[in-house]
Design a protein around this nucleic acid. Structure first.
Length: 280
DNA sequence: CGGCAAACCTGCGAGC
DNA sequence: TGCTCGCAGGTTTGCC
């Protein structure tokens, strides 16, 4: 489920039930996800109060009053679910359960187990190997058209690959890159370094707009991703090209029987959707 | 440097 | 009904 808007949605769902609450129990139901859990994972959080829940790129950061920060990545299929009361039944692929002093349960469920959890101590967070090489937050002041232009200037890779690179800009994934490039009118195959400055301005705006709109919609629900409270995101209804192979893009009035509609190609092993008429 | 495939893992839908 | 294949929101690694 997780690109930036989905992780942001999870953050906003978890913050009100966790911030200011003491974690009274952590149950770890298996030794590893993508990586082994760190030593004493549960013990280092149990008994402490959550100071705040934040997001950096696609990472969820939960800081505690004992100086520990839990770092969580949801991989492809990770989810946090909130249960207002203790739940007797274990769901398939529930891997970690956090219980708060209000009797609320937050469970991490992840069928594919590409996600992971780690703990960093205060101050060490920015040096965490997973945080270290991440690029600017697209919705922060660190990121603007000028910064984007500067980065793309030296990239001789297709723009699709460049935008998926988390060091270029943090948080875009396979869905939103297709959507962003469509809105910017840029072909996913275009070499990043060859994009004119004026069009980079448009690209920058497309990144910000798509992400903001997706966050407002509670993210995108594909297959069965849900927000922590069980609500569905609905940005998938606004997709212009993603998952729409052979259909008209959201802008064209062209005859699909002639143009073939939205095209799907593979770039570095992953599907890219685009409209050849709108994107050059 | 870049591009590509494979690796990690499970589930689902399509097609036979 | 049941099998196989390909595909899926991510990221790293290793090979040309």
């Amino acid at each position: 489920m997780p690109e930036l808007p989905e992780v942001e949605t999870v953050k906003r769902g978890l913050a009100p039930v966790l911030e200011g609450r003491r974690i009274v129990q952590v149950v770890v139901l298996r030794p590893d996800l993508r990586f082994p859990f760190p030593d004493e994972f549960g013990q280092r959080l149990t008994g402490s109060v959550v100071v705040c829940v934040e997001r950096r790129a696609k990472y969820l950061l939960i800081s505690f009053d004992n100086g520990a920060t839990m770092i969580s990545h949801l991989g492809m299929s990770g989810r946090f679910r909130i249960y207002e009361k203790e739940q007797p039944v274990l769901q398939k692929h529930d891997h970690v359960i956090f219980r708060t002093d209000q009797g609320v349960e937050v469970r991490y469920n992840d069928p594919r187990r590409f996600g992971f959890m780690d703990i960093a101590n205060a101050g060490a967070l920015i040096n965490h190997p997973m945080m270290k090489s991440i690029g600017p937050e697209p919705l922060s002041d660190d990121f603007d058209a000028k910064a984007l232009a500067r980065t793309l200037k030296d990239r001789h890779t297709p723009i699709k690959s460049a935008l998926l690179d988390q060091t270029v800009v943090a948080g875009l994934g396979n869905i939103y890159v297709s959507e962003v490039l469509f809105r910017a009118g840029i072909s996913p195959k275009r070499k990043a370094s060859s994009i004119a400055r004026v069009r980079i301005n448009k690209l920058y705006k497309a990144i910000v707009d798509v992400l903001n709109q997706a966050i407002s919609a509670g993210g995108s629900t594909i297959s069965d991703h849900k927000q922590p409270d069980g609500e569905l995101g609905y940005f998938q209804h606004s997709f212009s090209v993603y998952g729409r192979e052979g259909q008209a893009c959201s802008y064209c009035n062209c005859d699909i029987s002639k143009t073939g509609g939205v095209r799907r190609i593979k770039q570095s092993g992953r599907s890219t959707f685009y409209c050849a008429k709108q994107q050059k």
